[in-house]
């Protein structure tokens, strides 16, 4: 298969969760790729599989979840094939992650300085104490008073401070890829902008690639070079930010963009009728067909594959000369 991104190239990724309600088919053949130093935004309604995708990149899916199949190339390694011990060398040093809830992602009984130092010590194979100078430097970089914050505990931090700590922790090991899963969603609106700006500036200086996950089209449009639109566990459209806004192809993307100017968030999709399907028994064929204004007979049979319609523009929809067979 042709390589699409030189940093990360995910194809046909399937993840399920075994629950008492049945098997949740959370990811149904996700396609996603990135080049070095690039910023990719992943958007979609809540529950469409953004966080599961993010966690899968580092193989962090835990019971009752399971990565069923797919290929997950990071540089030249398939992360789905390597040993857990090799994966640990990548986690936290080559790829790092920022979660949505900064306060609860920090260990409540360890000081902030210790928790950051721990990551660096793990990466550089040194004693934890040796890393404190580097930690202080990093905390200053994210705009915190290092001396004071170093010895503080998570419950003493405000949401904004905690997210700065998370950013410091995420960027301290100078990862090639930073995954930020809704980094601003849990914060006050005024602080959201500050955090995004900080992230923008630091990443620009350090040159990391960023996988930015959000349900806020505005955030992604401002921050990212490329955008991947997800729907119910599938990648449905991928393009540069400019192309996606100027010339959206997928009916779902069009709906999303119509919703943007009015409400900013895509929680309420007034432009698209219907609701997200239940992933225990999703509709056959294209998972979007029940809500799609252009639905035809073929849409109900098989999921369309993700095909290129022009440079840097891919879409999974039968409206664009699709043979089908994707995501099966």
């Amino acid at each position: 298969m042709k390589r699409r991104g030189d940093l990360l190239d995910i194809s046909a990724l399937k993840v399920v969760f075994y629950t008492y309600r049945g098997v949740i088919k959370a990811l149904n053949g996700v396609e996603l790729w990135m080049n070095r130093g690039e910023r990719l935004g992943v958007v979609g309604e809540t529950g469409c599989g953004k966080s599961v995708t993010a966690k899968s990149v580092m193989r962090l899916i835990e019971e009752p979840g399971k990565i069923l199949s797919g290929r997950l190339l990071f540089e030249d390694k398939d992360l789905l094939q390597i040993q857990e011990s090799d994966l640990r060398q990548i986690r936290g040093s080559e790829i790092s992650m920022i979660f949505q809830e900064p306060n609860s992602s920090l260990n409540p009984v360890m000081s902030v300085g210790f928790q950051i130092a721990e990551v660096l010590a793990e990466k550089n194979k040194t004693k934890i104490k040796k890393q404190y100078p580097a930690v202080a430097e990093m905390l200053e970089l994210v705009g915190l008073d290092a001396e004071r914050v170093m010895t503080m505990y998570p419950h003493e931090l405000s949401g904004g401070m905690a997210q700065r700590v998370m950013i410091a922790m995420g960027l301290a090991p100078k990862p090639k890829l930073l995954i930020a899963d809704e980094p601003t969603s849990a914060l006050d609106v005024t602080i959201q902008a500050q955090i995004l700006e900080l992230l923008d500036q630091l990443v620009r200086e350090m040159g990391n690639a960023v996988l930015m996950i959000s349900h806020d089209m505005g955030v992604v449009a401002e921050f990212c070079d490329k955008i991947m639109v997800m729907y119910a566990g599938n990648s449905v459209e991928y393009a540069t930010t400019e192309k996606l806004f100027k010339n959206p192809r997928h009916p779902y993307t069009k709906g999303l963009l119509q919703a943007v100017p009015r409400i900013g968030r895509i929680e309420e999709l007034k432009a698209i009728k219907g609701t997200v399907p239940d992933l225990v028994s999703p509709p056959p064929g294209c998972r979007f067909h029940k809500r799609c204004p252009h639905m035809t007979a073929v849409c109900q049979k098989e999921h369309p594959s993700f095909i290129q319609v022009e440079d840097d523009h891919y879409v999974a929809c039968y409206l664009f000369g699709n043979e089908g067979g994707g995501g099966h």
Partner: peptide, 25 residues
């Protein structure tokens, strides 16, 4: 809790997570 999965994302060893994070708390 979130901080356990986050500890895994940080690349800490299972042993460390089991005792220093989970059991300790």
């Amino acid at each position: 809790d979130d901080y356990i999965i986050f500890a895994r994302a940080k690349g800490l060893s299972d042993r460390r997570i089991k005792y220093k994070y989970a059991a300790r708390n």
